[in-house]
Design a protein around this nucleic acid. Structure first.
Lengths: 162, 162
DNA sequence: TAGACGTAGA
DNA sequence: TCTACGTCTA
C-alpha cells in the first residue's frame, strides 16, 4: 500500500484526500491526521508557540458544534463540558484552546475531521473535511452556566467540495 | 490480503496463529479475536447459556494475574478492582465471570490474549497465546478486602509452544 | 498522574 | 444508561 509519513505536522497530510473516511480515532492517529485518541484538539509546539494541527468536530454530541457548508463553530476543551460525573468549570485558554487561538494569530492551517454517527448507531466514523483557518473566537456561557470557548473556523477556498 | 471471518465464535479463529501480535484492542476486534474494547472477558450466548470466547490477561496491571508456562490465573471483572475513583465492591458471578464459570462446566475453549507492556512504555501490545480450558475458579479477598473471583485456566496441549 | 469530543455491549 | 484489563499527551 501507499506509504504515508505520519510525523505530526501542520497542514495537508501527504496521501490523504478530502472525503477520506476512517472508522476509529486510532486510525486517524496511524495515518497522521490527528494523534490524540480522546482529545478533540491536537496541537504541536513550533519553537515556543503551540499551534493547532487538527480538530475532530461532531454535531450533537453535547458540545453543540455547528458544521455548515464552509464554517465550523467549534467548542473548546476543558471544564468538563461533557461531564463525566465531575462538576463543570470555566474553560481556560490553555492547551488546545490556546493552540487554536495561536493558530488564528499566525493564520496557521487547521485540519478539520468531522465525526459522524455511524449508520449502525455504534460509535462514529470520521471524515476528513480539509484545511480551515480560525476566523475568530469568543467566550460564552454554556448550558451549565460556565464559560465556554467557541472557535469559528472557515474553510480555505480551492479545496474539493464536501 | 487474507480474508478473515470475524463473526464471533468459540475456539480457534481462522487465519490467526499462536504468537500473532496486535497493537490495539480495536485490532483484536477487527480480526475477531476479542470484540470488547475495554472489557477483559468476552463472551456470547449459545442458546440460553453465556460462554466465554476470550480473555485479555495482563500481568502487573493491578489485577495480579499470573501467567506461567501453560497456566493463567485470571482475575474476574467488576467491583472496581481497578478503581476509577469509585469504591470497591464484591465481585459477582455475572456477565463475564458467569461466562467463565459456564465455560468450565461445559469444557468450552477460551482464547487467551496476553497484554504486554510495549517496549516504548506507551500502551500495550497483544499476543495470541492459544486455547485454554477453565480448570477451576474460586473467590478470595482482594487487596481492597472485597471478594474477587480468580479463574485458573490451563493451556490445551498440542498447540505451538509460546 | 490525570485529563481527554473513545467504543462496544448489557 | 452504564460499565469495562483503552490509549495518548502533557
Amino acid at each position: 500500500g501507499k506509504q504515508v509519513n505520519t510525523e505530526k505536522r501542520i497542514g495537508q497530510v501527504p496521501g490523504i484526500q478530502v472525503g477520506d473516511e476512517f472508522q476509529y480515532k486510532t486510525e486517524l492517529r496511524l495515518i497522521g491526521l490527528h494523534s490524540r485518541t480522546m482529545c478533540g484538539i491536537d496541537y504541536m509546539k513550533i519553537g515556543d508557540v503551540k499551534l493547532a494541527t487538527s480538530i475532530v468536530a461532531s454535531e450533537g454530541y453535547g458540545y453543540n458544534d455547528k458544521i455548515d457548508a464552509d464554517v465550523v463553530v467549534y467548542t473548546g476543551e476543558g471544564g468538563n463540558v461533557i461531564s463525566r460525573g465531575k462538576k463543570t468549570e470555566d474553560q481556560r485558554l490553555v492547551k488546545g484552546n490556546l493552540a487554536l487561538a495561536n493558530s488564528m494569530r499566525h493564520k496557521s492551517e487547521v485540519r478539520v475531521i468531522r465525526g459522524e454517527e455511524r449508520w449502525d448507531q455504534k460509535g462514529k466514523r470520521y471524515v476528513y473535511d480539509g484545511l480551515y483557518l480560525v476566523d475568530k473566537y469568543w467566550l460564552e456561557k454554556g448550558v451549565s452556566g460556565k464559560n465556554v470557548y467557541k472557535f469559528k473556523l472557515c474553510r480555505i477556498p480551492g479545496q474539493p467540495p464536501l
